[in-house]
Amino acid sequence: MIEACPVLAIRRPVRRPTDAQIAAFADTPTSFIVDAMAGQGALAAAIAPLSTELPQAAHGPALTVNAGPGDCLATLAAPAFTRPGDMVLIGVAGHQGCAALGDRVLGALRNAGAAGAVTDGPARDLDGIVTVGLPVWAAGLTPNSPMNTGPGEIGLPVQMGGRQVETGDMVIADRDGVVTVPFDLIDRVIGKLDTIRHLEGERDARVANGLIVTPDIEALLASESVAWVD
């Protein structure tokens, strides 16, 4: 006799950033965090803030959900495993044929204390989502609805927007997009942020004071590394 296969695979979180680590990313632009990771770390540009009527910044530890294309069973179960401050990442393998989430599941995530939600699929029920008020980054909108039959996964690694994300990684999102920081790199990235903030402040001041071309570019233009074409 063939036994029925499980419809959900769930791994309870085994690691989570400390409160101090989470706080270190507050009010930090995603571009600064990318610079601290050698220019990498952002999810695909299609994953963007869903609406200007929602908060445009959020950060917190990842709770990963692999709902699969066209399904939402794992997404419906995710609020049961969401801890206050979590960023819930819902992967649907980039499927664009139907919504990955809507206002009711986002309301449940808000009730569980989630800081925000990110998906590589579209969302639906925008008016309701705005009423819920939870920050959302998604790949657009569609009224099409998913199935809820599974299979799906919660707490296991998920591929999203060109990156693999694991539960416990840091997720930082703003108007520019979504950046993920692998758990093992959190302290290294935090250690670079003050320097990046200082350098960015200096560069902004130079531009505000009339800078046109930086000294290194001026030196390049005066060197033999440039071929002048008549």
Rank of each mutant, 00 (worst) to 15 (best):
I154G: 10
P182N: 11
Q164H: 01
P17I: 08
T18E: 12
G116I: 06
A67K: 07
A114L: 05
T82L: 07
C5N: 12
R163C: 10
H198L: 13
H198F: 13
A42H: 06
A48F: 03
I217R: 13
A77P: 13
G210W: 00
M1L: 09
I47R: 06
M147W: 12
L106H: 04
V158K: 01
N148D: 15
L141W: 00
A77G: 12
T52R: 11
V213S: 07
E224P: 12
A4S: 13
G161R: 09
A99M: 02
A46G: 07
V165R: 02
E3T: 15
I217K: 11
A123D: 11
A205K: 09
I186Y: 01
P49N: 02
T28A: 02
G97I: 01
E166H: 12
I186A: 07
N66Q: 06
I186Q: 12
R15W: 04
Q164E: 13
P215L: 08
A227G: 06
D187W: 06
D184F: 09
G210I: 01
G85N: 07
P122I: 09
D187R: 07
R197A: 15
G155E: 09
L193M: 10
R15A: 08
V92F: 00
V7R: 15
T142R: 05
P17Y: 07
L73W: 11
V181W: 02
G85S: 10
G201W: 04
A4R: 15
G116A: 13
A58D: 05
F81K: 04
V229K: 08
G60D: 14
D216P: 00
I33P: 00
A74H: 09
M87Y: 01
L220M: 14
C98S: 12
L8A: 06
A48Y: 02
I196T: 08
A138K: 02
G116E: 03
G107K: 11
C98V: 02
A46L: 02
E218R: 13
G41N: 09
P157E: 00
V88R: 05
D127K: 11
G152V: 07
L50W: 01
A208G: 02
T149Y: 12
V165K: 01
I172M: 00
I190W: 06
A57F: 00
